[in-house]
């Protein structure tokens, strides 16, 4: 590997799906440690599937997923976590009957040693969670649950955080706040790869963005350039 800025994730020409016809037809994604990379695209483009394929939840039929130069194609989620990849699914991303604190503990299940310092780091980032550490996650609001979900993922001290639509169903105010948090997380040296429906806002904070359509790359550029591209705007950003 020859790179000064380390390429964390490199997904090369991925084909795959849920067993039937391929949903991903030649997807390429890259993410560096200092980047926020955003995937946008129309419904059914395979955005979530691409995330799952990278994390080993959807079978990659051909193509390669490299993490820090090592081949992790179709590895088990447990292996992904051990290597420093954390994934937050779009829906049902907390353990509802477990308290906030227990949710965080489960995030750090594979970690050896004391979880306390990691937990304190998460509470520093999301002070709201510290206040509610004894509350079952299922009784919290959508925005708070999203924080729990991210907090759980951060418990493994990930190098790469993968977020599937972290702002889905949130109010505009909470959407802003969530993007702020994501910038904060990235500032700590954690690479972020996320799928977003709120494409305009997401691209505004993105280092780079990908536009996926029918399972393949359609555009790839910096966030601002994609936002400025009239074709992208018309096709995917609602004009």
């Amino acid at each position: 590997m020859s790179s000064s800025t380390t390429t964390l994730l490199d997904a090369q020409d991925i084909y795959g799906g849920y067993g039937g016809a391929d949903i991903l037809k030649g997807t390429n994604l890259r993410a560096n440690a200092d980047e926020i990379v955003v995937i946008v695209g129309p419904n059914g483009a395979g955005k979530s599937t691409a995330m799952k394929a990278i994390f080993g939840l959807v079978k990659v039929r051909t193509g390669k997923v490299l993490f820090q130069g090592e081949d992790i194609t179709n590895a088990k989620p447990e292996q992904m976590v051990r290597r420093g990849i954390a994934y937050v699914p779009q829906e049902q991303n907390v353990f509802p009957s477990l308290t906030v604190q227990e949710n965080l503990e489960m995030g750090g299940y594979l970690m050896t040693g004391d979880l306390k310092p990691r937990m304190e780091k998460v509470y520093d980032l999301f002070p709201k969670l510290a206040e509610r550490r004894r509350q079952p996650a299922g009784l919290m609001s959508g925005g708070e649950r999203q924080l729990v979900a991210m907090g759980r993922a951060l418990m493994v001290d990930p190098k790469l955080l993968m977020l599937d639509e972290p702002t889905a169903g949130l109010s505009p105010k909470l959407i802003d706040e969530t993007f702020e948090r994501i910038k904060q997380i990235n500032a700590q040296g954690i690479g972020v790869l996320m799928v977003e429906q709120n494409a305009k806002q997401a691209l505004a904070i993105a280092s780079r963005g990908y536009v996926l359509a029918t399972g393949a790359n359609r555009h790839e550029d910096t966030g601002p350039n994609l936002l400025a591209d009239p074709e992208v705007a018309e096709m995917f950003l609602g004009g």
């Binding site: 989620p77 976590v81 051990r82 489960m106 299940y109 493994v156």
Partner: peptide
């Protein structure tokens, strides 16, 4: 018991 998929994703 709460959420099988998330448990797997968490590495449990």
């Amino acid at each position: 018991s709460d959420n099988m998929d998330l448990a797997l994703v968490s590495g449990i």
